[in-house]
Design a protein around this nucleic acid. Structure first.
Lengths: 166, 166
DNA sequence: TTCGACGATGTTACAGTGTATCAGCGCGCA
DNA sequence: TGCGCGCTGATACACTGTAACATCGTCGAA
């Protein structure tokens, strides 16, 4: 289930900070903006933050459901909308899935997602240089940006280090 | 339906070259690689290339279907797979839709998609500088890339020029 | 020519993703 | 107490994508 938590921990991980930090940050953000950090939103964030891999909305719903309790996907979507709007979770467009945001960052500034096609983990970095270049390129094209996504698929450092489990 | 064809034509358009060019290039590519440029593939490409906006697979299927003829979405998907594998159309991950590729380019080198949230048109540019910076950033992170997507949403030059139709 | 291999297409079914709509619930506030 | 408002539950549905199998056409070999 959460077997990668250990293997991933060492591997140049900027992105995955664990649930505690994400929850603390969420509480702070919601308090600052006078928003409700409800039980459902908390639970969804906790599930997403507990994984270094992106989770689909239905995955999350399944994990939140149990014998006595059933969480519908639509509720998860609403919680995810809330969380993404407030920068607590990111949507990975190339996977139709979601990851928790490791650190506060100024609204999408040069954010890059590194998706390992081997272990499925997601790492998150920023690059002001890319942001600069992108800004210049857009200006040259006469385009006024409002949001951007930059996702790279490949092999992460950890998987390159230990290529095969033979 | 195709009302934007005129309005878009003047607007710093790198991306939308019309169906003829796309079809000619596709024929050349398929001949060079000894691939079959079948009727269905041709039709799908023609529909996609006739629009500056990205089209969903079901949109394409609908446009290809008529009173006597019905094209199933699954056939469209197969044609789109073929076309994307050969660099003739691109998938826009943030929209789950497809656009025809305006020009030959060396396998995803610094490709940037500019999606206008006002008129819905897509423009396509490349930036070696961004590619450079991205390469450096990835190297620093110890990440070996195999593919990447970079999509920017905002307002295109044409829509900025004529802000409102009042 | 006939046969078989192979790739493309047709068809059905189904899984996964996301939204619309309405009803009910909890809580603050007049 | 009652009202408003935001959150949640629940159902239904639309959109996106894939799996599996049948069929067809073409090309090359026997």
């Amino acid at each position: 289930m959460h077997d990668h938590a250990g293997t991933h921990a060492e591997a140049g991980c900027h992105g995955h900070h664990g649930p505690e930090e994400a929850l603390a940050r969420a509480e702070a953000v919601c308090r600052a903006r006078d928003l409700q950090f409800t039980r459902l939103r908390r639970d969804v964030l906790e599930v997403v933050a507990s994984q270094a891999r992106p989770l689909g909305a239905y995955d999350i719903a399944e994990r939140l459901s149990g014998p006595g309790k059933r969480v519908a996907a639509v509720s998860v979507y609403r919680a995810l909308d809330f969380l993404t709007e407030n920068g607590l979770v990111h949507r990975i467009a190339s996977r139709n899935a979601f990851v928790s945001c490791g650190h506060a960052h100024t609204d999408g500034a040069g954010l890059v997602f590194l998706i390992c096609r081997n272990c499925g983990s997601i790492d998150e970095t920023t690059s002001p240089e890319i942001e600069d270049q992108l800004g210049r390129t857009l200006a040259k094209a006469g385009f006024k940006p409002s949001s951007r996504i930059l996702e790279v698929e490949g092999e992460c450092g950890a998987c390159l280090g230990k290529p095969v489990e033979s």
